[in-house]
Structure formats: C-alpha cells, structure tokens
Simulated assay, not measured.
Amino acid sequence: MSTATLDSTTGTIRRAVVHIDDLDIVGIMHNARYALILERAMSEFWAEHGYGFRDGVPSSPDMIAAVREFAITYHAPVRGTGPIQVQFWLDSMGASSAVYGFRFLSEDGATVFADGRRVMIKMDRTGRPTRWTDEARAVAAQLLR
C-alpha cells in the first residue's frame, strides 16, 4: 500500500503518546502496540460523534463490528516515548464492510513509521454481517478519501 500521495487533509490526524510500557526490550515501540494505538485513535474519533459504550451497552448498533483484516508495514522504528501522530481514513465503505487506511507519523509529520490497512465488518448480535446505518455512513463520510 502506498501512502506517499496522502496529505494532512486526508481523513483525520490524532495525537497519540507512546508510553514506556509501549516499548520492547530494545527501546522501540513494540509491534503489537500499533494496533492498540490505532484502535484508541479511531475510538476517539467515533466517540466525538456519539459512538461508544456505556455500562457495557453500545450507543449504536454500528458499534458491533469486528476486525477482519489488519496489515501493517513498518518503515522506521519509533525509538522512545513521547508524542506521535496517527492518521487514518476510509478507502471504501461497503454494505457491511469498512476499509481503513492508516499511518503512524512523527510529531512533525516528517517521518512515516508505519502504514497499512484495517478492514472492519459490521455485525448483528448473532455475528452475521449486516448493513451500516445511515447515521454511521454520514459520520464515516468525513473520513472517505
């Protein structure tokens, strides 16, 4: 996946902080932390639009979704604690799927640490794929490339 043509107007950019427990034994951000930090950035975006969980109950049926695919390419290590940026956008939104692109950047945006894609599938309470609501599509439209 090439993200070279992206700019700061694509999708949304969130500030994240790398903490000491995000680092591995050699002092770089552990590979598993990228998925977690991306999840937090995406959750922050959706929470700003009223999507979340309270007392274990989803605020919308669109909150019932699962990751089908997560692919990441590492370009440069994050070599310590402190602020970084997480940029994500939607490449496409199908009837029950959403294909996100993302990248991790240095605080000044000059270094791309990693990029990739994440595919989400909207499900009903039985775990079967189901359509996104019109309300979620309206929010997601802000992220479409």
Rank of each mutant, 00 (worst) to 15 (best):
E135Q: 10
S59L: 05
G127K: 06
M123L: 15
D7N: 02
T73I: 01
W89E: 06
N31S: 05
A141M: 13
R128M: 11
D91H: 06
V26Q: 07
S97K: 13
Q85V: 07
H19K: 13
L105H: 03
F53V: 08
G116E: 02
R15S: 08
R14I: 06
F53L: 08
S106R: 12
R137N: 12
F70W: 12
Q85I: 01
I37V: 15
D62G: 06
S2E: 13
Q87L: 01
A95M: 13
S60E: 06
S96P: 09
G94A: 11
A35V: 13
A66Y: 13
R54M: 07
T111D: 03
P83R: 13
R54H: 14
A66F: 14
L143H: 03
A110V: 05
E69Q: 14
I13M: 07
I72P: 03
T10I: 14
W46Q: 15
H19D: 11
T130W: 09
A98Y: 10
D134S: 14
E135K: 11
Y100L: 15
R14K: 07
A35P: 07
R103W: 01
E44S: 12
V26Y: 07
R137H: 07
L105K: 07
A98N: 11
R125N: 11
A98G: 15
P77H: 04
G56P: 01
S106Q: 08
M63G: 10
H75M: 04
M63S: 05
I121Y: 09
Q87W: 03
A35C: 14
D108G: 02
R125W: 11
A76G: 08
